[in-house]
């Protein structure tokens, strides 16, 4: 039980995909219209849902089909097909209201960032049980959502500082992320 808790917490803090693997950085590299914290949390939760669903299918595909047949080298193709199918499934969600509009706004962003495919590639061979796969994937997704929200909060603080014009926006955001990555590396070995 404690192992699972550490797996979850590790995904959020010391194994965070953005801070330790530089995966899924694309939302932080371009300047876009400011989003509210609720919106970003929604986007993070969508990534988490996609990640948990794909981890479930990926674990079954890898441990039940590929490994017994000795076809581990096909994991790239099988994993991307799983991610595609789930994105297509998520696209079927129909809602006329505000929520449905936002849902379709985030989907390209969630698909385009490499966090989902990267996490699956890195971990599918490591996960030993189904529970471990689900909890681990949820941890990575929550870590991504946590970073989205925390960077937005940083930006709100940075706006109030008297910074020169050329460092505001993405540069300040990236430098803050770098310092955060250094801070988080202190959790290593916990």
């Amino acid at each position: 039980m404690l192992d699972l808790f550490y797996l979850l917490l590790g995904g959020v803090l010391w194994n965070n995909v953005i801070l330790t693997q530089l995966l899924g950085l694309s939302p932080f590299l371009v300047e876009r219209e400011r989003a509210s914290v609720e919106d970003l949390w929604g986007m993070g939760m969508m990534t988490t849902a996609l990640l948990v669903a794909s981890a479930f299918l990926a674990f079954l595909a890898y441990d039940v089909v590929l490994l017994p047949l000795g076809l581990e080298f096909l994991d790239n193709l099988i994993l991307i097909i799983i991610v595609f199918l789930l994105v297509l499934l998520f696209q079927q969600y129909k809602d006329e209201g505000e929520r449905g509009k936002r849902w379709h706004l985030y989907l390209p962003d969630v698909f385009m960032n490499t966090a989902i495919f990267g996490v699956l590639l890195l971990n599918v061979a490591e996960w030993e049980t189904l529970i471990e796969a689900l909890v681990g994937a949820a941890g990575f997704g929550l870590g991504f959502a946590f970073m989205l929200v925390i960077v937005e909060s940083f930006n709100k603080r940075l706006e109030k500082l008297p910074l020169p014009n050329w460092i505001t926006g993405v540069p300040a955001q990236l430098i803050t992320l770098g310092i955060l990555a250094l801070a988080v590396s202190g959790f290593n070995g916990l």
Binding site: L19, Q21, L22, I167, L174, L177, G178, I179, A181, L182
Partner: peptide
């Protein structure tokens, strides 16, 4: 050695960004 870690890459990229923004608005 800090620059070999992911955090270092983010800081390098952030600095380059700032440089590009400063010299080429």
């Amino acid at each position: 050695s800090f620059f070999g870690e992911p955090g270092g890459m983010m800081i390098i990229l952030g600095m380059l960004f700032a440089l590009v923004k400063a010299i080429a608005p």
